[in-house]
Design a protein around this nucleic acid. Structure first.
Lengths: 406, 406
DNA sequence: TTCATTTGTCGTAATAAGAGACAAAGAACG
DNA sequence: CGTTCTTTGTCTCTTATTACGACAAATGAA
């Protein structure tokens, strides 16, 4: 039951119904391809004639194409329709603290070229220069991917919706940094910039096929250097007034808790970020500028998990503590948003088999109802590259979005 | 940019555009009445002819009516249109721990009969019996209000969306209580039941006229016996999977903090509920079953505020502490949801002039960006009866809601 | 070969928006 | 007092799109 905003509404014009049905058909081709006109008509519950008109439009625009004729046990064989991803591609970019990754996908997010990467230069100008060089290189070396329709860039920080400037990316040390314009002019391509948590959530809802829960209210929690959270409400990313909604990483577990890079104390992030877990293992605060043993500076979460699996009691304890805090924070998300499903990504989930019971127990401890405590949790492994898939979705998703109505 | 759910979409039919424009016109009549057909056409950006067709439909259905002809400086005088609230009304019911209130409004939420109330009987059966008696009485004693179109009931607890059963209302001690069916059959009227926080939020977005920010992303925080929070995203109440979204009252400030009635520890509610503030003043936990002085049991927040204004240092300290915790919790809401505006209601806001600086300072302390720290906060006084207006909106709002599209 | 079935297209009807003409009502003005 | 101009609300015609049914083409089964 949505209220119509009397100050900003969209009157239906002659073409509105068509536009709605066009987008529905396009989405169904995307999720059901290969699919025939007749099947589309059946799924949509409209006449084949109506579908034919829409399909002809989509064909004329080059959004879909007719492929092979399908098999049928009797009667005329159907001609299959597909999203037209031939000769066109998208470049996805993931900027992280230490490394920037790059992937080329087709228009429905399927990877076309092996992921590559390079060390992140924290100077924005140099980073953009390096990035545009790499983008041009990969596109010229792989002519077969066709025309690039745009670049999606994911950053670990807040992004202004109107200008796409990076307002604040703590781990990179960026404040009010401009990258969209410069990357766009350097590459000559349209560029979209988005926060990594939101992009990960985007990747999940656009990846979902035939999964009803995956399109409704969903939350993605990325546990890494920082905590990125993307919230989806009614199939739409929750942005809020300043496009910074979803920062559950800085909702406190204890306001008297450990200091967080954001400046506050006791943020969830300060308990479960990779650095926090490692600090727990080494028994001191790794953020403080004390001289640390070489082991400490190069030691990663993956190493910690290896030790835990090998029976290192201190490693197990550190991971279990993180598991508990992870669950307690998830309880806040469950109580506040009550999503149908929570996705969790990040290095720590390589140890999901070890931590799941503790996470669920902690979640149940604070969840307000038994049903809420049973909220589905799905692990997204690093190999699924949710950030890069989200970056690609920044470019590909708008063509499939619902038109703004009423 | 909303994703179309491929498993649950709404194909546009011949009548869809009409339905959309009909709802827009109806909403504009509601927010702009009195208004002429010509003005409607101007606001909607369509021809007067199209508006006339829609208006004729709405007239035929009795949703609007033609009133007096208006004045114009030159040219033909317009005939004004109004929402037709003649001879029809809505009963709004607010069930709280100690008292149940009852109000009669017209179809756009304007109060028709003085609010009445009675002590809440915590036995659901007896409460429903008393309530239906009162509803029948007020409707028969005020024949002028016309036909009752429905009853909206607001409860301080979680409500199941499908069955309208009250899953859990801690302060009332209710678990899985049925009241909609029994009240509906006792009164012969349609009954809607909703959580009080959500209803308060609903009241704000439906009360708003000509205020763009009030229809977007908005949060209502009600500070009372418990903390009720209602979140509005895109003009729609955020419900989540189990209709329990918005329970920020049980997001922790400190997981090691005071025990909360919900069973967990350190919930926001445990810091800023009226009982928490009073406990702070009396220097002990009022929830514990220790024998308390008569003064303690009858002492209210209003009394505390009086003492604070009179210069009682302990009272000032108790209120200021609550102010700080209130602001810290608001920061969680701001970081998680980033609303355009936060409404605050409850007894404590009678001292808003005393606490606002502390609230804002605490909010700024944890807000992630300067803009977020400046999030607009509006106080809603008890006299505005947000709960009851929300209860009325439960019945009146559906007629004005946007049709489900795509 | 015949028949049933399925696909995709075509033609007609129904519905609603887009555009503009027009009558009615009334103020301004000579 | 009559003329002119403006504004409102209705009406007609056109165009676009869905709704419905018929039909040809394709194809396997009897």
């Amino acid at each position: 039951m949505r209220k119509i905003n009397p100050n900003n509404f969209h009157v239906a014009t002659r073409g509105t119904s068509r536009e709605i049905n066009r987008q529905i058909a396009l989405n169904l081709v995307r999720t059901h391809q290969p699919i025939s006109r007749a099947d589309l008509a059946r799924i949509m519950g409209v006449r084949r004639g109506a579908v034919s008109l829409i399909v002809n439009d989509l064909l004329a625009e080059g959004l879909i194409f007719e492929g092979a004729t399908g098999e049928s046990h009797r009667g005329r064989k159907p001609t299959f329709l597909y999203i037209d991803s031939r000769e066109r591609c998208v470049v996805a970019v993931d900027i992280r603290v230490t490394r920037t990754s790059l992937m080329v996908t087709d228009l429905i997010g399927r990877q076309l070229v092996a992921t590559s990467g390079f060390p992140t230069d924290r100077d924005p100008k140099r980073l953009v220069a390096e990035l545009s060089k790499r983008i041009k290189k990969v596109l010229s070396e792989h002519k077969e991917v066709g025309e690039c329709k745009g670049v999606g860039v994911v950053v670990p920080g807040m992004v202004d919706r109107a200008t796409s400037r990076v307002i604040h990316a703590p781990t990179l040390g960026w404040r009010d940094v401009e990258i969209r314009e410069s990357l766009a002019s350097a590459t000559g391509l349209p560029v979209h910039v988005e926060n990594s948590g939101k992009a990960c959530a985007l990747a999940q809802i656009w990846a979902a096929r035939g999964d009803a829960a995956a399109t409704g209210d969903v939350v993605f929690v990325s546990v890494s250097d920082g905590i990125g959270v993307g919230i989806v409400v009614n199939g739409e990313i929750l942005r809020g007034r300043h496009n910074i909604a979803g920062e559950f990483g800085h909702v406190p577990l204890s306001i008297d808790g450990p200091r967080c890079p954001c400046g506050a104390t006791g943020c969830w992030e300060a308990y479960i970020s990779n650095l926090a877990t490692l600090s727990r293992y080494f028994g001191r605060n790794l953020r403080e500028a004390k001289p640390a043993a070489a082991e400490v500076t190069t030691f990663t979460i993956e190493d910690l998990i290896v030790r835990a699996r090998a029976g290192d009691a201190k490693a197990v304890a550190a991971i279990e503590a993180t598991a508990r805090y992870l669950g307690l924070g998830l309880a806040s998300i469950v109580n506040a948003v009550d999503p149908a499903r929570i996705y969790i990504g990040g290095e720590i989930i390589a140890a999901w088999d070890l931590i799941e019971p503790d996470v669920r127990a902690a979640l149940a401890e604070r969840a307000l109802s038994p049903d809420a405590a049973k909220t589905e949790i799905r692990v997204v492994s690093l190999e699924d590259q949710p950030r890069l898939r989200g970056a690609a979705a920044l470019v590909t998703a708008p063509a499939f979005a619902a038109p703004p109505i009423a």
